[in-house]
Each structure stands twice: as C-alpha cells, then as structure tokens.
Design a protein around this nucleic acid. Sequence first.
DNA 1: TTTTATTTGTACGATAGCGTTCATTTTGCT
DNA 2: AGCAAAATGAACGCTATCGTACAAATAAAA
Lengths: 213, 213
Amino acid sequence: MLDADINQTHKLIDRPASQRKIADILAAARVEFFANGFSAATIEAIAARAQVSKVTIYSRFKDKDNLFGQVVRAECADMRKNFTVENLENKSLRDVLLHAALGMLDFLMRDEMIRFERILAAEVTRDPKIGERFLDNGPRRLLQDLTNLLQLSLEKGEIKSDDIVASAEMFPGLVMGRMDLFMRYGHKVKLSAADKQKRAKRAVDAWILIHQP
Amino acid sequence: MLDADINQTHKLIDRPASQRKIADILAAARVEFFANGFSAATIEAIAARAQVSKVTIYSRFKDKDNLFGQVVRAECADMRKNFTVENLENKSLRDVLLHAALGMLDFLMRDEMIRFERILAAEVTRDPKIGERFLDNGPRRLLQDLTNLLQLSLEKGEIKSDDIVASAEMFPGLVMGRMDLFMRYGHKVKLSAADKQKRAKRAVDAWILIHQP
DNA sequence: TTTTATTTGTACGATAGCGTTCATTTTGCT
DNA sequence: AGCAAAATGAACGCTATCGTACAAATAAAA
C-alpha cells in the first residue's frame, strides 16, 4: 500500500477502453468493500460487478490489498474535494460557522460516508497508514481550516479563546454530538432539513456564546 | 446470535474446570477478535491462545458467530458495569459533570475500548443487532442517565434548557470533541492526567455557561 | 488487412479455515 | 478404585478464495 504502488501497470497502455474498465473496477470494488469489508469482499464478486474478468483486475492492480488501497485513496480525494470551510471575506463568523455546520451534517450523515467509516475502522489495525490518509484528508484538514478561520476571527477581536485549537476541535463535537456514534453502530438516522438547521443553529449559538469576548 | 443462544450446552455439566475453560476461551476470543476482526480471527488461534482444543470450543459454543456474539455480550456487560453517572444527592451539578467527564475520558480512551469500537463498527453491517446491543449498554444508557440528571437539575432551576435531550447529547460531544475519531483512525492518543483534567474542566465550563439560567 | 495489445474463460495449484468424527486420554465425582 | 463426563489430538471433508497459466478471442492501431 505504498504510494509507489498507485500504478502497477508498467507495460500496459492506456487505451480509452482500459481506462473505462479501471474506473468500473474501482467503482465495483468500492461497492463490494463497503458492503462486506476487506476480508469478506471477493475479487470474483468485484469482477462480476464490474463486468470484467478476474485476470483483468490482476493485470491492473497488484493484489487485493492494492485495490483496496486505491479505493480508499479515491474516496479520500473525493472527500477532500467536497469538504471545505469557506473563508470570512464577506460573511460574518456566524454565517460561516452555520454553513460549515450544515455542510458537516450533510456530508457526514450520508449512508456512504457511514459505511466508509465502518469499513475503515476495521482496517486501521491491518494497515494504519490507511487511517492516517483518511484523517489527513478529512478530520485533520477540517480542523486546520477551522483553526485558521478562528485565528483570524480572534485577531479581529470577534471572539475570545485561550486555546484556539481546542476551540476549533470543540465545534465539530458540538455539531455532531454523539450522532456519528449512533449512526455508526445503529440504524440509519434520518434528519429532516429543518432538524439539521435546528441542530446547526444550536451548535453555532452555543459555540459563539462560549467564545464571546 | 439470538438471546436464546447464550448457553449452547444442554448436556454438558458445569464442572469448575469447564467453567475456567469457558472463561479462558472467551478471554482468548476477545484478544483474537479485537486484534484481527471477525473474519480474520481463527478458531484455531483462539484455541491455541486459550490452551484448549478446538473441539472443546465447539462443544461449548455453537459456532464462530455465537462465540463472537458472546464476546460482545460480555464486553457490553462489563461496559455497563463500569460506566455510570452518579446522582446529585450531595454534590453540585458541576462536580457530578466533572466526575462524569473524567470517567468518560478514562473509559473511552483505553486501548481496549478503541479496538473494541473498531471491530464492532465493521461487524454492524454483518449483524446489526450487535451494534444495538453496544448502543444500549453504552451510549444510550449514558445519555439516559445524563438526561435524568439534567431533568432534575432543570426542575431545581439550576440550569435552563429548551431541549433537555439535546443538552444531554451535547455534553459527551463537548467532552470528547473529535478525539474519539482521531483515536479510532489514527495513532494512540495519550493524554496525561493533567490534560484530562483540563479537557474535562473546559467541557464542563462550556456546558454550564451554555445552560446558565 | 495485418499486427499488436489487451481481455477473456477456464482451469489449476495452493492455502486456509470451518466444523465434524472418533478413538484415546484425562478429569473429577462417589 | 471405578465410572461417567469431558477434553484432546489428529485426521478428514468441504468450501472458499487468492493469485497464476495459457490458449483463444477480441479490440485497437498501423
């Protein structure tokens, strides 16, 4: 699962049909891995789903580990793309936080994300690097963005905080509460748009109250 | 993994040696399952670790699923035993919350708990009931105890809240922040006793500030 | 059309793990 | 000591999956 393993194909040429097949394989692998976990997912099932022969998979990916690693890599890249905190340019801190809170609720409550986190948790023991990649692209990145945002706000005197990192970390905790836990171990939790609004507002109000100058 | 499956032994007699072996098997199974996950853990490895023959395991437990279920059951019972919120009898709300926060930090940050949650997450898809059992004995129970506590405090006029359940859920979120996430997917996070104190105090102060009458 | 790259299906070897059978041995009770 | 219950070890059948080999078929490129 080294970075050098991204592309196993040294002799194979990138024909358009091949590219499409690779994408199909990754998509199929994603479904199978997320549904069954690493151990229980099978290469044959992935091949069948991708409508590709098993040999094709092995000609494009070194082995099952490598395929899983690339699925995670793709998923993390996607996460990174869709999960950002906007800056303060024209908006009030409250509005930015509200937007971020709603974004978190939308993004983290998707079934796909929940399944992804379930599978990932199990594989961290097998390959810790995979967990680190997830953290770097998701939680740590969010935390860093939030910290930067709050640092600016602090310098403007809009808020007070004796530990800006702790304040940043507190925010997602306030927004999600124990919801992520209930989602990971229990039934699907469905929140209406209104409920999300309410939850986001409650978290932002609380955070701002705590950090009032 | 039905409740009726707790004891598979209808003909076997509970000799003291047998009891000890059952305990050994459960302990060994716990280690193997937590270290490798359900699929990757093997009965033979469990037997070897428990210093017991494979046949003995099968004479006491129906199959691998049943063994895993009982390990989870035992773990949940242990959790329930060790994880309580004291009541308000003689103490101030602040002290009770502080105590609860420290208890949470100690309990949830143990390596064992982290590994347990990792494994469990993966198995929820395979057997949702196992996740429910965990929630009932852990998070839901805590939430209920907290809610009861806060309801009392509310009636005494010590705090204000328009949604006592939301207020209760907010508390663990405030205490743990994203730490549980970083622990689940990343390196071991070690907090000194002083750091735990600091974190607990910060969370309690924040929660009380938010709910000041 | 010819050539080359790629894919496919099928078969195969190797490994591993589950769960069972059974003859033998050990244990604990009386 | 004698007896019944329980544990052991070794072997076995079975199934599943990984990863590979190879000849045939197909697709792209020249």
